[in-house]
Amino acid sequence: MKALLERGQDAVGIRLLQESFNMGSLSLYASLGFEVKEALVLLKGKFRSQPLSGVEVRPMVSQDVDESEALCKELYGCDRTRDLEYAVNDLSAWVACKQGRIAAYTCSMLALGHSVAETEADMQALLLGAAASRSEVEISFYLPVRYASLFRWCLQEGLRALKPLAVMAIGDYQQPVGCYFPSYLY
């Protein structure tokens, strides 16, 4: 870990996801200067409800990358263009459109991809729409527990909480706005 920190010494900040039940890693990261920035829970399962009307949810295509990246920069505060381009070609990326514009996207319906939405309602529409097309597969994502109403909604929809995690950071950290789910790779 010290070698990694030395390698990143010129970075404005370094982030990681820590499994909160692992006291050894929590102690190691804290002793190296990392601070907990966000409590998360890994959720997994299938939604009970059908997609919401009034929101178009469809697979992301390469023409959506620029608009999705602009949404990411506005809400997430960082550039994820490479992740979006990879997701379009190699993952199951989705967008939710309202009034002809992208209001939410996900790089994957698995926890390895991040998701961004303007509001919790937009995230719900995205999740239900994308999950409906993959009804045979359980989805998973890391939900910040500060979204208490979204967390309760997910539980009521039949998803299971599997384990607690935390976003930890050293250096600069910009708290995302809107609604976001980090990826395992952050």
Results as ranks from 00 to 15, higher is better:
residue 152 R to Q: 15
residue 132 A to E: 14
residue 127 L to A: 07
residue 108 S to F: 01
residue 161 A to L: 10
residue 139 I to R: 01
residue 160 R to L: 09
residue 143 L to Y: 01
residue 160 R to N: 08
residue 98 K to I: 08
residue 144 P to E: 01
residue 161 A to G: 13
residue 106 T to A: 11
residue 119 T to G: 02
residue 114 H to G: 03
residue 157 E to S: 02
residue 133 S to R: 14
residue 115 S to R: 02
residue 149 S to E: 15
residue 154 C to L: 15
residue 127 L to T: 04
residue 153 W to I: 08
residue 160 R to I: 09
residue 135 S to R: 15
residue 163 K to E: 11
residue 119 T to I: 04
residue 110 L to S: 11
residue 150 L to C: 02
residue 153 W to D: 06
residue 164 P to V: 10
residue 162 L to C: 10
residue 142 Y to K: 00
residue 114 H to A: 06
residue 151 F to G: 02
residue 120 E to K: 02
residue 101 R to H: 12
residue 133 S to Q: 15
residue 150 L to Q: 05
residue 101 R to V: 04
residue 111 A to K: 04
residue 114 H to Q: 11
residue 108 S to C: 10
residue 150 L to Y: 11
residue 160 R to P: 02
residue 117 A to G: 13
residue 133 S to L: 15
residue 100 G to H: 11
residue 132 A to G: 09
residue 122 D to E: 05
residue 157 E to A: 05
residue 134 R to C: 14
residue 130 A to Q: 07
residue 147 Y to P: 01
residue 112 L to F: 13
residue 131 A to Y: 06
residue 148 A to Q: 14
residue 148 A to K: 13
residue 104 A to G: 05
residue 105 Y to M: 03
residue 157 E to F: 01
residue 104 A to D: 08
residue 124 Q to F: 05
residue 126 L to M: 01
residue 156 Q to T: 12
residue 105 Y to H: 01
residue 156 Q to F: 13
residue 154 C to D: 04
residue 139 I to C: 04
residue 145 V to A: 00
residue 121 A to R: 02
residue 148 A to D: 15
residue 98 K to S: 09
residue 144 P to N: 00
residue 110 L to I: 12
residue 147 Y to R: 06
residue 119 T to Y: 03
residue 158 G to K: 02
residue 133 S to G: 14
residue 117 A to R: 00
residue 125 A to K: 04
residue 99 Q to F: 13
residue 148 A to G: 11
residue 140 S to L: 06
residue 129 G to L: 10
residue 157 E to N: 03
residue 98 K to D: 04
residue 105 Y to A: 02
residue 141 F to E: 03
residue 147 Y to N: 02
residue 148 A to W: 13
residue 152 R to G: 11
residue 99 Q to C: 07
residue 126 L to F: 01
residue 112 L to E: 15
residue 153 W to A: 03
residue 124 Q to W: 07
residue 126 L to C: 05
residue 127 L to E: 07
residue 122 D to M: 03
residue 120 E to S: 08
residue 103 A to M: 09
residue 129 G to E: 05
residue 103 A to G: 02
residue 155 L to V: 13
residue 104 A to S: 10
residue 162 L to F: 11
residue 158 G to Q: 09
residue 151 F to L: 15
residue 116 V to C: 12
residue 128 L to Q: 10
residue 120 E to P: 04
residue 151 F to N: 08
residue 157 E to V: 03
residue 116 V to N: 08
residue 132 A to P: 05
residue 127 L to F: 10
